[in-house]
Nucleic acid binder design. Structure first.
Lengths: 252, 252
DNA sequence: GCTGGTCAATTGGCCTGACCACTTGACCCA
DNA sequence: TGGGTCAAGTGGTCAGGCCAATTGACCAGC
């Protein structure tokens, strides 16, 4: 059932092996895994290694470790493959496109149900953002607050979480490195203007306008990004945008 | 009513502590953490415990462990807190509402750019789903494949990932326990019909129709869910604008 | 001066073996 | 029948150790 493993980051190999067994259905949901000691023996590794692999799977939400009882399969698909080596996360352009599609739907939805206090939240974020265009930290925090603030208008925790997560993905080292080359007071001021247009559309209950403004904002972000990106790598073909980006993020 | 008592495992406490230090900026991105041996001493725990905590943070994408070199902070926010115990995630209704908003935007986008091979993927998922209405495992897998397949049409990895993640959130023990009470061959057959309507709209390039069909599908899912359990959980979270779409086909 | 190789200190990866705390279920007693 | 006890099984943690990879100082050769 379990076969021995080989070199290189053993606990990850063990985790991969068990994960794939869950994935293909060899281990079904609800099933109890062998004890750690037994797994260690069958895999020809030590118990600490098995423990580390199981902790990986637990963090991924695939198994549930119950003290004194055992280890149980609780889910078949990983919720997040972010840290896995299998796929090097998405590129910045891809991310901005996804945000354009998702967040303009959220803005459209929010426009119909914004209350004065919701608008106040947006205004507060706008103020912080316009007042801090010279400090990347404050402006980023305010930017995030604005986008999640829109999701909050709909009153749905999942939307807020997803919006925040997508925003946070720009916090990868690679993305930040690129961003540092093109983000500055001028681009931030443009962003503030676009935010204000979104805010106004939502405040006036203009669903179509909010949608359009949000799409414009994220499309322009993408444009700003690609323009600087093109300057940086002026010789490069703009076509294979995400490929180039992914290649850079890979294998550091 | 009665809460918890969950005795936090030591390695999780250590992970929480380091995570919060990163979160508040006490440890900045790029900074190198003390060596495992030193951390163990400073925290008054053993080295294996520190290792397990660091592995948690690595899986969450917060730190990067480099063999022979050290441990480095790579990111400030966790990409996904889905698997963390801190919050019992969002409720099923909230999740379905979020999916309704997000996925109908994706379906709308997909309708304009579906190629024959994309439709083939959807058809294949539909076939597996309709043929396996008596087996929860196959039908769930096919259901997932259908929804991510639509996101795949847009050709954006982030959209695919987000769609998959939202779908997988139903795999929580709590959600599954509830679902097992109302999901069955009849409800699955209704879902297949709704899927087919979505597929047809996308295949014919009808963006508005695809959007409406997707919203109808997820709204009806929500409705089926609340009809079985609404009374117990007082599902008063009825959103007016969705009612129109909810008119029509029901479980037969 | 610069390049390239060597070497030792540092650090993570993994192991052995042990003890403790909790869960579980069989068992016994009232 | 209901409860309480107890031992086996299991995860949680610890201590100490060795190995392999990384890194930077150092040195020989061009």
């Amino acid at each position: 059932m379990f076969s021995p493993v080989e070199s290189r980051r053993l606990y990850r190999q063990v985790a991969d092996q068990i994960r794939s067994m869950i994935s293909v259905g060899e281990l079904v949901v609800g099933q109890k895994l062998p004890a750690e000691r037994e797994l260690a023996e069958q895999l020809s590794v030590s118990r600490p290694t098995v423990r580390e692999a199981l902790i990986v799977l637990e963090v991924e939400g695939l198994v549930n470790i119950r003290m004194g009882s055992g280890i149980y399969v609780v889910r078949r698909h990983a919720v997040s493959m972010a840290a896995s080596e299998s796929e090097p996360v998405e590129g910045p352009f891809e991310l901005l496109q996804a945000r354009a599609i998702i967040e303009c739907a959220i803005a459209e939805e929010a426009a119909g149900r914004a209350r004065p206090e919701d608008i106040a939240v947006l205004d507060e974020a706008l103020m912080r953002m316009s007042g801090g265009v010279n400090d990347a930290g404050t402006v980023l925090a305010a930017d995030r607050a604005f986008h999640t603030g829109i999701a909050a208008i709909v009153g749905n925790a999942t939307l807020i979480r997803v919006t925040g997560e997508m925003f946070d993905m720009r916090m990868t080292p690679y993305f930040e490195k690129l961003a540092s080359h093109f983000e500055g007071p001028t681009t931030w001021r443009s962003a503030v203007d676009e935010h204000r247009a979104i805010r106004d559309a939502i405040a006036s209950g203009d669903a179509a306008g909010a949608k359009a403004a949000m799409r414009a904002h994220l499309t322009l972000s993408q444009k700003r990004f690609s323009e600087s990106f093109g300057e940086e790598f002026s010789g490069e073909e703009e076509r294979g945008r995400d490929k180039a980006a992914a290649r850079g993020a890979n294998k550091t």
